[in-house]
Nucleic acid binder design. Structure first.
Length: 351
DNA sequence: TATGCGTGGAT
DNA sequence: TATCCAAGCAT
């Protein structure tokens, strides 16, 4: 078996020439790199997020804010609303902070991995990816795809996360001085389309002849630790209507769904049980329940509908009346978008 | 190093 | 239905 790093990277690049995925934020193999703004924007959106989910958001952001300077000048609330539904909302807060940092230096992204790493929201992966893809630096790009491909290629049976040191060292050896951006994208394409998590298509793999893991069964690499069972939580959200508008609040920047517009709730994000206090006294009736799965717990959110009382007692410091006919533009995260749909449906059927 | 942080699609 | 997890980052 040939484990020469030159052979492996050359085979992979040759494969990429013919089979690279065509993506809106990407230049074809061997052609000049895209605008760093596009590379950065796509990479941030792609963190822990599928290509399919990112597509429409990337198009929307690029149309609305074609340059990093325009993004930097945007209102926070508008950007957060545009990000609604994509998840991991700290990314959107960091996106703005990063855009403003770049705008402050004239609108040009720094061109090295080390400088990029200092920007908000750019960790080891994203800094290396932007450096390699947008600027042609020989940076070692390691995401979950690369981790999987390398762990299989070298049959690394040490479990994650301890194996990451060895995986990075191998990935570093493989990274070529020429076309490091194409190489990184080729590794990720291979991981996404051939060397998949389950049912890898080894017969189609350009590196099959170089792969030590294949004989032992590629699927068993990388070795992962067992996961803890997910917790179950219950909480309440409150629907308060007045004159064709609903009361929405702004969540604090820290914690779950931070910085997002939302229905008022009882603080379920910080507790684990039951339905707590609403935002004002009065008469409430129970609506339906929204079941929602977060990464680290499942939530049953009881919808409570306001049916009478003294609206003057509503604390009005961090909220606003939002017109119901524009509810889709409120930028509610998915959990609260579900709750709002449910409230509107129950209201129409007069339940 | 471990944990908190979203969502929707695949199996 | 249940489980996994996708181009990770911040703390």
């Amino acid at each position: 078996m040939d484990t020469s790093t030159d052979t492996i990277s050359a085979s992979l690049l040759a494969w990429y020439e013919g089979l690279a995925r065509v993506l809106p934020w990407r230049s074809p193999p061997g052609t000049p790199p895209p605008d760093p703004y596009r590379v950065w924007l796509s990479e941030v959106m792609l963190q822990q997020t599928t290509v399919a989910a990112v597509g429409p958001y990337f198009a929307k952001f690029l149309a609305r804010w074609p340059t990093v300077k325009e993004l930097a000048a945007a209102d926070d609330a508008e950007v957060m609303a545009a990000w609604a539904g994509l998840g991991y909302y700290a990314r959107a807060r960091n996106l703005l902070a990063c855009a403003r940092a770049v705008a402050a230096r004239g609108g040009a992204f720094p061109g090295t991995e080390a400088e990029l790493r200092e920007l908000p929201g750019l960790g080891a992966y994203t800094a290396a990816a932007v450096a390699a893809i947008a600027f042609g630096e020989r940076a070692t790009v390691v995401d979950a795809n690369v981790e999987r491909v390398v762990a299989r290629l070298f049959a690394i049976d040490e479990p994650l996360p301890a194996a990451r040191k060895a995986i990075r060292a191998r990935a570093e050896e493989l990274t070529p001085a020429e076309r490091p951006g194409d190489f990184a994208q080729a590794m990720m394409d291979l991981g996404a389309t051939v060397c998949t998590n389950r049912n890898p298509r080894c017969l189609l793999c350009p590196l099959a002849a170089n792969c030590a893991g294949r004989r032992a069964g590629a699927e068993r690499f990388p070795v992962k630790p067992a996961k803890a069972a997910k917790a179950q939580r219950r909480g309440c959200a409150f629907w308060i209507e007045r004159g064709g508008a609903v009361w929405l609040v702004q969540r604090p920047n820290t914690g779950m769904l931070g910085g997002m517009r939302a229905l008022p709730d009882d603080g379920w994000a910080a507790r684990s049980d039951g339905c707590g206090e609403g935002p004002l006294p009065g008469e409430w009736r129970a609506g339906g329940v929204v079941r929602h799965a977060f990464t680290h717990f499942d939530l049953d959110l009881q919808l409570m509908l306001y049916s009478g009382g003294d609206l003057d007692r509503l604390a009005s410091d961090n909220g606003e009346w939002w017109p119901l006919d524009r509810i889709d533009e409120a930028g509610l995260p998915t959990l609260f978008a579900k709750a709002a749909r449910l409230a509107l449906a129950e209201r129409e059927t007069g339940e």
